[in-house]
Simulated assay, not measured.
Amino acid sequence: MADSSTEARVTEVADGIYQLHTPVGTGKAGFSFNQYLLVDDAPLLFHTGSRRLFPSVRAAIARVMPVERLRYVAFSHCESDECGAMNELLDAAPQAVPVCGRIAAMVDADMFDRAPRALEEGEVLELGERRVRWLDAPHLPHGWECGYLFEESTATLLCGDLFTQPGADHPALTRDDILAPSEAMRRSMDYYAHGRDAPQLLEKLAATSPRMVACMHGRAYEGDGAALLRELARALARTA
């Protein structure tokens, strides 16, 4: 896991959406961790980073806006890089609350110092000028409580561990293929649950027609996100 002294790079990848990117290691051992900060009347951070990353994540947020302005800290599913620094962020932002799906609110809430805002499938959270919609995605790629947020004005899908790419030295955003490197990583260390509903869930995500697929590990993808998600569904079917 990254050392707390690692500095996060901050890049605006869409209007008012900032990627906080922390590289870890080099070469074949390299990896990266991203969080996404949505700036609005009620700012939202998607994923916290691990507790050890908290100092650099906090410093990265502060380069965009005061950390105290955060109102929502959302996460896809319960792992250390998704929500490990939740309580540190809640302490730094007194008005902030965790945001997650109904299942996560049921099974993970006792971990957090404030009760989470639990979102139903398809429920919209108003941030001000922008809206984010919760999409349940159990076991995709893993975690019973897994789900994603779709930001409507920029058509950005905050896609958690989907399309995880190895390596540490990544640009923030690309139009190049991210499926091939992410599939190579999946084949080498299969972290997918291979749930029976994966094809239907991927089609549900594709139906949002995302113009940006905001990955938590590696580059975010700008382009035809629906086609990318459907190609992932075909790749999973070939290896089922």
Rank of each mutant, 00 (worst) to 15 (best):
A233W: 01
Y221K: 01
E12I: 09
A92D: 09
F163N: 01
L228G: 04
E129V: 14
L202D: 07
F31T: 14
A96I: 11
A180P: 15
H217D: 06
I61N: 03
A155N: 08
P116N: 12
P94F: 06
R211L: 06
A207W: 02
R211I: 07
Q95D: 05
I17E: 03
L20A: 03
Q19G: 03
V10F: 02
H194M: 13
P43W: 05
Y221S: 02
G195T: 03
A193K: 03
F75R: 06
R187E: 13
G49F: 11
M106V: 11
V97C: 06
E82L: 09
D113I: 10
A62H: 03
E126G: 10
S50C: 14
E7V: 15
D190C: 15
P66Q: 02
Q35N: 10
F33H: 14
D110M: 13
A227Y: 01
C146D: 05
A105P: 13
S80C: 13
L20I: 11
D197A: 02
D113C: 08
A227M: 06
A109R: 12
A42I: 09
A93K: 05
S4T: 14
L125E: 00
L158N: 07
A2P: 14
G27V: 14
P23W: 05
A74K: 07
P199Y: 04
D161T: 02
M189D: 10
R187Y: 09
V124H: 01
T174V: 08
S182M: 03
E79Q: 10
C78T: 14
I61D: 09
R63E: 10
H21Y: 11
R234L: 13
S209E: 08
R69I: 05
V10P: 00
M111P: 07
